[in-house]
């Protein structure tokens, strides 16, 4: 299995709270990898670390063999041209139309003539089924459409890697189905490496080739969806089955209930 991203001994803390405590993981090339875990385990932070937007305290993040943490500002911006990130909110530029949003990366990085930009934008929009929405403004789009436009913008420069931050959160079943299919389709058609961070277990497991479960700053489970389902780790079981109590307790750490009430 050839790896695209390799993370070794990653430590990261925010304030006094340790988010990652020596995380080691490998993301295979050309596959869809799902990173799952309870809220607050730093899944989104992991994407930002891969994108070089935050620096880890320790450890290395190898992107196609190069350590992201050692990049200079210029190298980092060059490396980012080869990756795309789909933000949870879509993060479309609110002052630009759908067309201009998708054209933005091309205008910023290439000197393509206007008619070619137009063709590429329409092709990308067609891939997400929104060629007809090119003249709308972001404020006129529904949540699912916003994310699809953002996806078209993300693939505008044909990246090698796409990072999806909670692509399914807050979507209705139809929009969710469309996104699930798009992620799989784009990955296979364009030969990408896809990483998606999510806590929608069934959707994620249904499209990913490889899954990683994070909890308490560690990787607690890794493998194909089938392997994970057979895992006998109580933590993995609790997470995959959505049990309210288990190794991740229902109660926030507190005094004994009786002493708390009766003093």
């Amino acid at each position: 299995m050839e790896s695209y991203i390799k993370i070794n001994g990653l430590h990261f803390s925010r304030g006094h709270r340790a988010i990652f405590n020596g995380v080691n993981l490998t993301i295979p090339k050309g596959k869809v990898t799902a990173i799952m875990g309870p809220s607050g385990t730093g899944k989104t932070t992991l994407l930002r670390l891969i994108g070089g937007q935050v620096k880890p305290d320790r450890g290395e993040i190898l992107l196609d063999g190069n350590d992201v943490t050692k990049f200079k500002r210029k190298e980092l911006f060059d490396a980012r041209k080869k990756m795309g990130m789909l933000f949870q909110s879509g993060a479309l530029f609110s002052d630009l139309s759908v067309f201009e949003n998708v054209a933005f990366p091309m205008r910023a990085h290439t000197k393509l003539p206007e008619d070619m930009v137009r063709d590429i934008v329409l092709m990308k929009l067609n891939a997400v089924g929104l060629r007809g929405a090119r003249d709308l403004m972001p404020s006129e789009l529904s949540g699912g459409m916003t994310r699809r436009v953002a996806l078209a913008r993300t693939i505008a420069l044909d990246p090698e890697l796409i990072l999806y931050d909670e692509p399914f959160a807050g979507q209705d079943p139809i929009a969710m189905g469309v996104l699930v299919q798009l992620i799989r389709l784009l990955n296979d058609a364009l030969g990408l490496t896809s990483v998606l961070v999510s806590h929608d277990i069934s959707e994620s497991l249904s499209i990913c080739d490889h899954a990683i479960i994070l909890a308490d700053g560690h990787v607690i489970g890794e493998g194909t969806p089938a392997e994970l389902r057979k895992s006998d780790s109580p933590l993995v079981k609790q997470f995959l089955n959505g049990l309210p109590d288990g190794p991740v307790p229902f109660h926030f750490p507190a005094l004994d209930y009786k002493t708390d009430l009766l003093g």
Partner: peptide
């Protein structure tokens, strides 16, 4: 609204 972040991730400063 993460517009600055997404710009950064597109390699635009």
């Amino acid at each position: 609204t993460e517009q600055l972040s997404s710009m950064e991730m597109m390699g635009v400063d």
